[in-house]
Design a protein around this nucleic acid. Structure first.
Lengths: 292, 292
DNA sequence: CTGAAAGCGCTTACAG
DNA sequence: CTGAAAGCGCTTACAG
């Protein structure tokens, strides 16, 4: 009998109306995620893993990119709540706690990835250890005494702070002094890194023989600055990038890249949801993978 | 009075339930898009523009990546239809016509981007002209007689066919003969391009002085093959890539890249929706932009 | 076990 | 113009 109904339903092309079903069941089946941008390997890979795991759990994944704009983040989350999303994942959000508050009001749990918050669980990379390792690797690569620049990232964001902490610690462990001019967290956009490097030309840049670049987008800006100055190929400069792009990895194998373990971050995130242990603010750190 | 209600609603944190609203209004406000993958500049940029324009039109954009898998494409579209999506955008689909049929059954219009179908309107790049220009540019770049390899892409897909047609035409216009071994549409994955190039080593590869690479993913494979062979830097090889990646553009300025005009493609797509002129199968071609 | 009724939260058409 | 009722398409709780 049930089979007959199913067969008939299929023949006639019947399909449930999820809007109606969701309304009656008071369960939308929707899980929402916001993220800064798609056109970057890290975030687009997060998105693909998010979709895969959400579907595997029987959820319908919804994503929106919010361009690191707090107002857009709020608006996007609000819209997802209107569609009765059951969970909100906040990726690289400028203010995860504000998003938590918004969702908590209607009883929807939030989980953070990439950038942590103080009010819900956060799955992030172990930025400190990754930066410590990368810095050591670059110091090893340099002939003679290393003078390394740290460039890119937001000085106020948790990840950049942790990476700077790892950068400093490696210098301490190797007995290398640091002065503050070595550390330039100029923001995340390419033009900012470009301007910051240009400002250093004839003004101390020549004294550096290593660069810790905080993201591929900063790498883009740094490369533009060097290219404009005509010294794109400075073979004695050790270059590391705390980010991953497979094309960069093959085109510029001499650049050491740090790959955040996106698969593990997302499987951890969904394990929290699956097991219902996502309540309570805490930070779960996933070690990144040092390339080459 | 209306203001009082609005104020009270805001104070109490009231928000409509879109599931209920959609059900009653018989309009979900949802517009869905499927695409092959996110982690690539072309598709992620399409997604960002899609979201922006959909929001501007008051729609709620939903995207899903389907890994060029026909079964996943069908399943993703079916799910979007369950949530009563009002339009389905098919990006780079393996079989847009099948998706059209599925949606037509429930009266939902489909529009194609990137790869065209025969049953609904398609907004794609002018692949023929782009390839013609790129091939001419590479012939210009070569010292002496040009022998150019075409590598990457699916020989069955419309875009690759058109690009090969442009490749051939440029050769004809320049009086250069072509033999079939020059054209290797080995598929879209990096390992395929890598294997194809490796198979040519000691077997004709040395006779080429130019390469027309059909995507950044193929570029990745080609670079791996060259790098494994130790001749990564062959300065006399003219290289072009029918795709765009800003990091490649700055890191390897000697590679000529073709940037598909994603903004124009999407604004054209939404113009069709806005004006209600999306009915009727036809192809709208947008000229890509030749770099450098 | 079966089948009709109630109700999810809205919007709209309609009666007063 | 206002306010109560009907109904969007489901699922569930309940009567028979």
């Amino acid at each position: 009998m049930a089979n007959k109904v199913r067969r008939l339903a299929k023949e006639r092309g019947y399909a449930v109306n999820m809007q109606a079903s969701a309304l009656r069941k008071e369960r939308s089946g929707i899980i929402g995620m916001i993220l800064p941008i798609y056109d970057n390997r890290f975030f687009s890979s997060i998105t693909q893993n998010f979709e895969r795991l959400a579907r595997e759990m029987g959820y319908f994944p919804i994503t929106t990119c919010t361009h690191r704009d707090p107002a857009l983040e709020l608006q996007a989350v609000r819209t997802m709540l209107l569609y009765q999303a059951e969970y909100i994942i906040c990726t690289g959000s400028t203010d995860p706690d504000q998003l938590y508050d918004l969702c908590a009001k209607v009883g929807v749990p939030t989980l953070n990835i990439d950038l942590p918050g103080n009010k819900s669980v956060s799955v992030i990379s172990d930025n400190y250890s990754g930066a410590l390792q990368l810095t050591h690797k670059l110091i090893d690569d340099v002939q003679g005494t290393c003078r390394m620049l740290f460039i890119g990232g937001q000085p106020t964001d948790h990840n950049t702070k942790e990476r700077i902490r790892g950068f400093r610690q490696a210098h301490i462990e190797r007995g290398l002094p640091i002065d503050e001019s070595q550390i330039i967290p100029c923001g995340y956009e390419a033009p900012k890194a470009k301007e910051a490097i240009k400002a250093l030309f004839g003004n101390g840049f020549e004294s550096y023989n290593a660069m810790f670049i905080n993201s591929t987008i900063s790498l883009e800006g740094v490369t533009q600055a060097l290219s404009d100055a005509g010294n794109l190929h400075s073979p004695d400069m050790a270059v590391g990038c705390f980010d991953w792009d497979p094309l960069v990895a093959v085109l510029k194998p001499e650049i050491t890249m740090v790959k955040q373990d996106v698969e593990k971050m997302l499987s951890e995130l969904f394990a929290l949801i699956r097991s219902g242990t996502h309540q309570g603010a805490r930070i779960i750190q996933i070690p990144p993978i040092l390339g080459h």
